[in-house]
């Protein structure tokens, strides 16, 4: 049981898919200008990884290893189509905003990486836990980045104005505070993730890389 909980807890910190394993960076950076998009992306990846890992683990003994990449891609693509259609049906605006990036979950290396590294060698229950754990680890970083970028970039969280109204100059804005629109642009996502990595490794020197 202790081992099972490790499967979920490890990827949240010391074996985080984004900051340590370097998997799934593309989508982590592109859609984090808003917290809402980050949360939806996390849920989508959670769904795809949880189910995908179980499916791969169930069929791991019957697929020839030569064609396993194509099989993996097909499994993921089918799951991503489900996510995409659900989003289109229930939240069309958001699915327009996320655009091609929902499709790019297919080639999100975090999914293929965990298939290869874990689901092909372990039973369904453990694979499920591993999938959930890694998707959560991925989501934690996404939500942290989305939180800071939306708060500092547009002064809102989930669309609600937290710091006051920039036009009527209430709240923090009455003191002369201005939104830093630069946070919404692509390069700041990279720098925010860089800083998260910095903080994480400063707290845990065992993770520091050789130069």
């Amino acid at each position: 049981m202790a081992k099972d909980s490790k499967l979920i807890l490890d990827p949240l910190a010391d074996n985080n898919p984004i900051t340590i394993q370097v998997l799934g960076i593309c989508s982590a950076l592109a859609i984090t200008a808003q917290l809402k998009a980050s949360i939806v992306m996390t849920i989508s990846v959670l769904f795809v990884m949880g189910i995908g890992n179980v499916v791969m683990s169930l069929i791991r003994n019957i697929i020839p290893s030569k064609i396993r990449i194509i099989v993996q891609l097909t499994v993921v693509a089918a799951l991503v189509i489900i996510v995409d259609q659900v989003l289109k049906a229930f939240s069309y605006q958001l699915s327009k905003e996320l655009g091609a990036f929902i499709g790019l979950i297919i080639t999100n290396c975090i999914i293929m990486g965990r298939f290869e590294a874990f689901a092909l060698g372990n039973g369904p229950w453990r694979s499920f836990l591993d999938g959930i754990g890694n998707a959560l680890g991925y989501g934690v970083i996404l939500i942290i980045v989305g939180f800071f970028r939306e708060l500092l970039g547009s002064g809102t969280l989930l669309g609600y104005q937290i710091l006051g109204d920039p036009i009527a100059k209430t709240g923090l804005y009455s003191l002369g505070y201005e939104n830093n629109g630069f946070m919404l642009l692509a390069p700041m996502a990279l720098i925010v993730v860089g800083i998260i990595i910095w903080v994480q490794r400063a707290n845990n020197p065992a993770l520091i890389e050789e130069n």
Binding site: T19, A186, W198, V199
Partner: peptide, 22 residues
């Protein structure tokens, strides 16, 4: 700086390059 070595500094350099490309 030690905690930035490897991945961290690569991220930050990429960010700076992206600003340049803007």
């Amino acid at each position: 700086p030690a905690p930035l070595r490897g991945l961290g500094i690569t991220f930050i350099i990429t960010g700076l390059m992206a600003i340049g490309f803007m």
